[in-house]
């Protein structure tokens, strides 16, 4: 006890500035590696990206400031409209297929009396498949002589060119991605549904609410915060999708699956125009940020209501 009292007394006598540095020393030391790494590998590239967007990047002759002309070239590029439209189309399809399915499936799974664990496992299983295996699998499933067309032949004689037909290539990609990704979202919704108090259902049932009414008025409002979260997460991730497109269709046929992010990659590593690629990245940032500010406002308003 006496040593503790002595220590307290000692603390009161040292100069406040020394005391402060001593108090903060370890906290800052622990934080230092993270601060350095974040500066070096995230903030520097972000800052450089903005800088490069106003420059002509040349490894040999050195970078040269060229003002807004990168932006002008990007906006004048005729492929830009195509890639923006493709990205929006891709995002819409992902929402159409991938946003409602998980929540409905999770409600259905939560109602299972038996095999619930097995069903969770099955739904999540595709999530574990490495991306390259996913590409290989779906290359085969979409093969003109492959299973997708065999299934289509049960319903009539129509055969599809899943990956080489301009009008359905994007849909094929979204189906493949949804197959893989929706299990993760399903489990997150399930965690939310399990957390809803059973008393609410009990009370609603006594008051005479049917099953569908209970789902509509208790389950769905109970996981509404997850809907908003998943929606935002999905928008962020799909707006930057390009890898499946690259692997399955290579952006074709005739640019039908060329997304915005894919165009950035092409600009950088095919045309070697890093300045223009950076400018496209900055434009993307501006659009996404303003979009999320708008969404955030909507969310805030709906909470007040």
């Amino acid at each position: 006890m006496s040593t503790q009292a002595a220590r307290v007394k000692e603390r009161h006598t040292v100069h406040p500035l020394i005391k402060k540095t001593r108090d903060y020393f370890w906290g800052i030391l622990f934080l230092l590696p993270a601060l350095i790494v974040f500066c070096l590998f995230l903030w520097t590239p972000i800052a450089k990206g903005v800088m490069y967007s106003f420059m002509h990047v040349d490894f040999i002759k050195g970078n040269e400031f060229i003002g807004l002309s990168n932006y002008r070239e990007v906006l004048a590029n005729s492929a830009l409209g195509i890639s923006i439209w493709n990205t929006i189309y891709y995002m819409l399809l992902c929402v159409l297929f991938g946003f409602w399915v998980p929540s409905i499936v999770s409600i259905a799974i939560s109602e299972l009396r038996r095999f619930q664990g097995a069903m969770r496992l099955i739904v999540y299983l595709p999530h574990i498949v490495p991306a390259v295996v996913l590409y290989g699998m779906w290359q085969w499933l979409y093969d003109p002589l492959g299973p997708a067309n065999q299934i289509a032949s049960w319903f009539g004689n129509h055969q599809f060119m899943w990956l080489t037909d301009k009008s359905i290539a994007m849909i094929s990609i979204v189906i493949a991605e949804t197959w893989q990704a929706f299990g993760g979202a399903t489990l997150i919704y399930l965690a939310g549904i399990v957390g809803i108090s059973k008393d609410l259902y009990e009370a609603a049932e006594i008051d005479g609410a049917g099953v569908l009414q209970r789902i509509r008025h208790i389950t769905i409002p109970g996981i509404r915060h997850l809907y908003v979260l998943m929606f935002i997460l999905q928008l962020i991730s799909t707006s930057q999708g390009f890898m499946t497109h690259m692997a399955l269709t290579g952006g074709g046929p005739n640019n039908a699956t060329l997304t915005y992010m894919y165009q950035i990659i092409n600009e950088a590593f095919t045309n070697l125009n890093f300045g223009r690629a950076s400018a496209m990245g900055v434009l993307m940032f501006l659009v996404l940020t303003s979009l999320s500010i708008v969404l955030y406002h909507f969310q805030g308003r709906s909470k007040e209501a």
Partner: peptide, 9 residues
Amino acid sequence: IPSATYMIP
């Protein structure tokens, strides 16, 4: 910040 912004830089 979207990774598209800083991937190339």
